[in-house]
């Protein structure tokens, strides 16, 4: 049944307002090969843990704590999809599961397709780094004791010289001086570090980039450059999943926005739908719209509404 969901993709261009696979489309969204680049259907992740509220330490029972439930999201080729949600709401957990990295005590349900092929944990693990790459948040993701060049080479396919050549090519493309390869991470400026992390991600020419809060800590000009790099990548036919807590940033750079709230995506729609609250479907998205600075920072009692719906 799940597979049949995937194969009903006959019209490659959808009407922007037509809901399809729990989402609506943007102008950029392409269904190359009749499928999504990444499709997550009904993902649920929870953890079994000992009851932390139990005062009798040795008698604590195991609890199942759901973090993500019934999550649907799709990334098309040629687009940037932003997942917007509060910090600490499980967005990074979603990134981890798309790359097949599960904690030992995690219980996972649902389906993930990559490029039209249904995946499991092992096949996702094989894809990560080569087809799916992560651009992490900060310089702490670089080994402090290894020269930058070696870190960018990594341990992927291809011989050393080919990888060195690829690294030089990427450094040239992203405006990093060749001497930067000889530096240690603590010798990099914030802007250089971000580009180095991007080069790490692009090393094996991935199709899908997951960017986990890539802009905090960068000044606005650098953030603009960073986002332009993602735009270039999407325009070249890749897909970008941008994880952020910043709705304004998401609206300015992404093609589609997925609103993440309380462990699930409540609405996944094109940025154009944010022009007016009437084109938004979910009460939480509407409340978010009203809370935007240009719409008067209006806080609405959204949780009450959600309980009623």
């Amino acid at each position: 049944m799940a597979v049949s969901v995937e194969t009903t993709h006959a019209p490659h261009q959808h009407d922007a307002r037509r809901e399809h696979h729990h989402h609506t489309h943007a102008h950029q969204s392409q269904h190359l090969g009749g499928h999504h680049l990444l499709q997550v259907e009904g993902l649920g992740i929870g953890f079994t843990m000992y009851d932390p509220g139990e005062p009798r330490f040795f008698k604590a029972r195991q609890l199942f704590v759901p973090v993500i439930h019934d999550l649907h999201i799709a990334v098309h080729r040629g687009e940037i999809v932003a997942i917007v949600g509060a910090s600490g709401s499980g967005k990074t957990l979603l990134a981890d599961s798309i790359m097949g990295m599960f904690a030992p005590n995690a219980q996972v349900s649902g389906n993930i397709w990559y490029d039209g092929v249904k995946q499991d944990a092992a096949s996702l693990a094989a894809l990560r780094g080569s087809s799916i790459a992560l651009v992490p948040q900060s310089i702490s993701h670089l080994d402090p004791l290894m020269r930058v060049g070696r870190q960018v080479w990594g341990r992927g396919a291809g011989d050393k010289h080919a990888r060195m050549a690829r690294q030089r090519e990427l450094f040239a493309r992203y405006g990093l001086p060749e001497a930067a390869a000889r530096l240690y991470p603590h010798e990099l400026s914030g802007g250089m570090a971000r580009r180095v992390l991007l080069c790490c991600a692009l090393m094996d020419a991935p199709q899908l980039i997951i960017a986990d809060e890539p802009t905090p800590g960068l000044d606005p000009a650098l953030a603009q450059v960073a986002l332009a790099d993602f735009r270039d990548f999407a325009d070249a036919g890749g897909g970008v999943l941008l994880i952020t807590h910043d709705i304004e940033l998401a609206l300015s750079v992404a093609d589609r926005v997925a609103i993440f709230n309380q462990g699930t995506v409540v609405e996944e729609t094109s940025v154009a739908s944010f022009a007016s609250p009437h084109t938004l479907a979910h009460p939480f998205s509407k409340a978010l719209w009203h809370a935007l600075p240009e719409h008067g920072f209006v806080a609405q009692p959204v949780y009450g509404e959600e309980g009623a719906s």
Binding site: R128, G129, P136, P144, G154, G156
Partner: peptide, 19 residues
């Protein structure tokens, strides 16, 4: 973070320990 990053790039545990 840097070991997590190495993992997301597909490095195996023995390689991570050595490198």
């Amino acid at each position: 973070d840097y070991v997590r990053q190495a993992r997301t790039r597909g490095e195996s545990t023995p390689s991570i320990v050595m490198r």
